[in-house]
Computed example of a mutant assay.
Amino acid sequence: MKIFKKILNTGLILIVVSALFVWWSNTTIESDTEAYNSFNINDIPKEKVGLVLGTGKTLANGQPNLYFNYRIEAAVELYKAGKVQYFIVSGDNSKKNYNEPEDMKLALMEKGVPENHIFEDFAGFRTLDSVVRAKEIFGQKELVIISQKFHNQRAVFLAQQNGMTAYGYNAKDVNKAMGFKTNLREKFARAKVYWDMFFGVEPKFGGEKIQIP
């Protein structure tokens, strides 16, 4: 019986510590990036490159993915306002018939962005990879990141931790019911940011340098 109580108490302590760690991670990342994220395009400084973070064009049920559509709309707004000249579209291309960078590139072109102003990063498997590779592979130490606010907060924080100056232009978010799972997953993803920092996790792939004019 005593052993059972010890196991129970230890389990409860771990749960409490883990919950506090998740809360602290989220609070810190939000506070450290608050001044660098905005829904107002006038708050975003002019930079040469915008980094569009990847997501699938459609959902598992075949319906359009609003996260994708809203990110493309936000990217086009930046381009037409003269806030960025080029884009890195970074996402997952690890499965057959699934190509986030190519889908984003085609969507941007349909909205009027010239093809030679779009650079594809096919190894953006995680936000960490996309951000660090923008610096290490594409040579960008200053950029604008395009995604939803909850995602931009983590991405901008990662950029800051890697010696970059980044601003997040917040794309329109989906309604709370539709985005519940995504937002919940984000809470734990922020805790993992510190885990990755502690263990020195790096992008999965490197590669040859790509020069943006």
Rank of each mutant, 00 (worst) to 15 (best):
L20C: 14
T10Y: 13
V76N: 01
A177C: 03
A74Q: 05
G163H: 06
V131P: 07
L184I: 11
K204S: 13
G50H: 01
D92R: 06
V89G: 12
K57N: 12
N40M: 10
K176N: 13
A159Y: 00
M197P: 09
T27D: 12
G207L: 06
F150V: 09
A166K: 00
G124R: 05
I145N: 00
L53Q: 04
M178Y: 15
N152L: 08
V193T: 14
K192Q: 11
T33F: 04
F119G: 11
M104R: 02
A107L: 12
N69F: 04
V132A: 05
I212S: 00
T27W: 15
T127S: 08
M164P: 06
G112D: 00
E136H: 11
E34K: 15
K96I: 11
K6F: 14
Y194L: 05
Y67P: 12
M178A: 15
F87K: 12
G91Q: 04
I210A: 06
D173A: 13
N183D: 07
E186Y: 08
K172G: 02
G56V: 05
F4Y: 05
K141E: 13
K105S: 05
K96M: 08
V113I: 08
G11C: 01
T33S: 04
N26W: 02
K80G: 01
M109T: 07
Q63E: 14
E34C: 07
V52Q: 00
G11I: 07
A189R: 04
F21G: 06
N116D: 10
E102F: 05
G206C: 10
N26M: 05
